[in-house]
Design a protein around this nucleic acid. Structure first.
Lengths: 217, 217
DNA sequence: ATCCAGGCTACACAGGCGTATAGTCAATTG
DNA sequence: CAATTGACTATACGCCTGTGTAGCCTGGAT
């Protein structure tokens, strides 16, 4: 996605401010990021930020919109079949989201970026629609629910990347780290953590007892 | 976990402040939460917060420590085999983390709460150690790496819960929503999203091309 | 040449925040 | 009883923030 080239309107001060904002929001979070800091990173005055975006909140929304545009581009690429069997969708998504990973993580947890998440869910849903026929058994739950949960799981290593890196003991920003993570995900995705018999057992148990949290003395 | 009864030192103003802080940090995030707001929720003056915890950062660390204590309790419960085959570890974890879910989500993304994540990774690692013998093939990557990534995936529906709920179209705080999520996770966990042949293919492809991100001008 | 819209800056302002200080009151201790 | 400790409050301080305003400078249109 990155090498698709900048938008025609890029290279302008407005674009530099937006990029700096995404870096700052991603690194420090929305609250700790300051307009002055963003302006300094963009090489402009703080007043210009206001001049172009009006307010800090509007600047955030502009960043969200830009991120969504990138996601949509990725979406279209996948739809057009340009990379259908070259990469798996997980690796594709992670690679495409790379530069915006930290921003996306903060935005998602802050409750923002709903459109991004929904867009990814749609992607996952299509993927399930394509691959469900290969399943031996019929799915227990609807496709949209599975797509939603799966999207969250696919985003988890992006959102919690620092923790995963620490726990793994590698730097995920190095080629070795990326390779290890990719191989790990492939192993996890290709092996069920629960046997179908166990899962059925648990599912049955769920249906019986009321699913509220069990009270403990 | 809530009905396990408060610590002996609870019910004190100090405990009330800590609980209120966890609610506020969880709901608004660390930055947007204010000492004055926490104090008001706890029914005390803002000065008392400082008296007991010294600073906002120290208050956050106290919350982290309290959360870790709860996690450790859960850890011990699992280790002692009290709920080994009653619930699956995912459901257990989610249920136990319930009241602290939002706090945990913010803390994890902010980079804090490393100890919590590592504790959960340890849990997952033990779980893999128990269940690896049932695998038909030998794991491609080390147990710790898989445990780390799996922990992130298991936490994803907690961290991104609002998005999952919206995409699913249900309220996850209702029994119906909990049930649907549980059944969805059981379905996902009991079905690989990739065939072993596909995974092997992707893994082989990973080894060939250098996994670095393409540079951007 | 004139004008002027818009990118851009410098500076000022008000509010909210964490923090600090001084002091009150009740319980404990000698 | 006197003294000390610690929980607790009220109030003030100083900083940083987002925001507002006034003005400068450049480039293109008339």
């Amino acid at each position: 996605m990155s090498p698709t080239g900048p938008d025609p309107e890029d290279l302008t001060a407005r674009a530099r401010i937006r990029d700096a904002a995404m870096r700052h929001f991603g690194e420090y979070g929305y609250e700790r990021a300051t307009i002055r800091g963003i302006a300094e990173s963009a090489g402009v005055s703080s007043g210009l930020v206001r001049h172009h975006f009006g307010s800090k909140q509007a600047l955030r929304e502009a960043c969200d919109a830009h991120l969504i545009k990138q996601i949509r581009r990725l979406n279209d690429d996948v739809r057009s079949g340009r990379m259908l069997h070259q990469d798996n969708p997980i690796a594709t998504t992670n690679a495409a989201l790379g530069p915006y990973r930290r921003y996306l993580a903060h935005a998602l947890v802050a409750g923002s970026a709903e459109a991004v998440f929904d867009q990814l869910v749609e992607l996952a849903e299509e993927w399930f629609a394509e691959n469900d026929p290969r399943r031996p058994d019929a799915p227990q739950v609807g496709r949209r629910a599975r797509a939603a949960a799966f999207t969250a799981m696919a985003l988890s290593t992006a959102v919690l990347r620092d923790h995963v890196a620490r726990a793994m003991g590698v730097d995920l920003d190095t080629p070795e780290g990326e390779l290890l993570l990719a191989r790990t995900l492939l192993d996890l995705y290709s092996h069920p953590v629960l046997g179908t018999d166990e899962a059925a057992e648990y599912t049955a148990a769920l249906g019986k007892l009321p699913p509220g949290r069990p009270a403990r003395p």
